[in-house]
Amino acid sequence: MNLTIDIGNTRNKLAVFYKNELVDSTSIDELSVPTLQNFLNKHSNIENGILSSVKVIDPSILAFLKSSLSYFIELDETTNIPIENQYKTKSTLGKDRLAAVIGAYNIFPDMNVLVIDMGTAITFDFINEQKQYLGGTISPGLTMRYKALNHFTNKLPLLEKNEDFSLIADNTANAIISGVQNGIIFEVDGYINTLKSEYDDLKIILTGGDAIFFDKKLKNTIFVNLNLNYIGLNRIIEHNQPK
């Protein structure tokens, strides 16, 4: 069995796979050796593992994983992956972005796929039918946009996402909500439509913490998969695991 660990900007996510089947997953606020030990005790058949992180990892955690697992990968720019990475600054590429693209390739092999991760930041990443990852874009996420309006102005309040919003708002609070949320919708639909003009067979996968919130609000047909990073990380293990 395989253990995938995805350390993001706000959450730490663990998942267990048996071959390509997701067996269990959980999110935790803080990753520690005792937490990992408890998780491994719960899944005693785990032999292989991979860790992807956007942060610097405590050396004791890496040492524990290396000593506890038969085969362990700390994902970085030198890791052997099943796609061709054409990103020019590989050392600066977020590991979560790379894992998501590999997950998309695993779901839609030999197809043009756009991955939109709606997390702390909103990232757009494209892999073509030749399994070449070409790159993408990064923009502020939903919560970050609300916080920025509050932080960089004197009077605008700090608000949160709201299901009730319109195109034209008649008060300041609703104007903020409309601007932030409609702005993201227009950005995402606009990006998709522009890319579709070049790739008419484009598949689109939405993932990340705000994916469900925006799913039905977008005009384009999309697939939502909140386990995309897990799937990509597991695919990397399977690709590298000694036969």
Score class of each variant (00 low, 15 high):
Met1Pro: 01
Thr4Arg: 04
Ile7Gln: 05
Ile7Asn: 05
Asn9His: 14
Asn9Cys: 05
Arg11Gln: 11
Asn12Thr: 15
Lys13Trp: 07
Lys13Ala: 11
Phe17Cys: 03
Phe17Trp: 09
Phe17Val: 03
Lys19Trp: 12
Glu21Ile: 12
Glu21Met: 12
Glu21Ala: 07
Asp24Lys: 09
Ser25Ile: 01
Thr26Lys: 14
Ser32Gly: 11
Thr35Lys: 15
Thr35Val: 14
Asn38Leu: 12
Lys42Met: 13
Ile50Val: 13
Lys55Pro: 05
Ile57Glu: 11
Ser60Arg: 13
Ile61Val: 15
Ala63Met: 13
Phe64Met: 06
Ser67Pro: 03
Ser68Val: 05
Leu69Thr: 12
Phe72Lys: 06
Pro82His: 05
Ile83Arg: 00
Glu84Leu: 07
Asn85His: 02
Gln86Tyr: 09
Tyr87Ser: 01
Ser91Arg: 04
Leu93Met: 10
Asp96Leu: 11
Leu98Val: 10
Ile102Gln: 01
Gly103Lys: 10
Asn106Pro: 00
Ile107Phe: 11
Met111Gln: 15
Met111Pro: 00
Leu114Phe: 08
Val115Trp: 05
Ile116Phe: 15
Asp117Glu: 13
Met118Ser: 09
Gly119Asp: 06
Thr120Ala: 03
Ala121Glu: 01
Gly135Gln: 09
Gly135Lys: 13
His151Arg: 15
His151Lys: 15
Phe152Ile: 07
Thr153Pro: 06
Asn154Gly: 15
Asn154Ser: 14
Leu159Asp: 05
Glu163Ile: 03
Ala169Asp: 03
Asn171Arg: 04
Asn171Tyr: 02
Asn171Cys: 08
Asn174Arg: 14
Val180Glu: 00
Ile185Val: 15
Phe186Cys: 11
Gly190Thr: 07
Tyr191Val: 09
Tyr191Met: 09
Tyr191His: 04
Ile192Tyr: 09
Glu198Gln: 14
Lys203Asp: 03
Gly209Pro: 12
Asp210Cys: 02
Phe213Ile: 06
Phe213Trp: 07
Phe214Val: 10
Phe214Leu: 12
Lys216Glu: 06
Lys217Met: 12
Lys217Ile: 08
Lys219Ser: 13
Asn220Leu: 02
Phe223Tyr: 13
Phe223Ile: 13
Val224Ser: 01
Leu226Asn: 12
Leu226Ser: 10
Gly232Arg: 02
Gly232Tyr: 00
Leu233Asn: 02
Arg235Ile: 00
Ile236Tyr: 03
Glu238Val: 00
His239Tyr: 13
Pro242Lys: 04
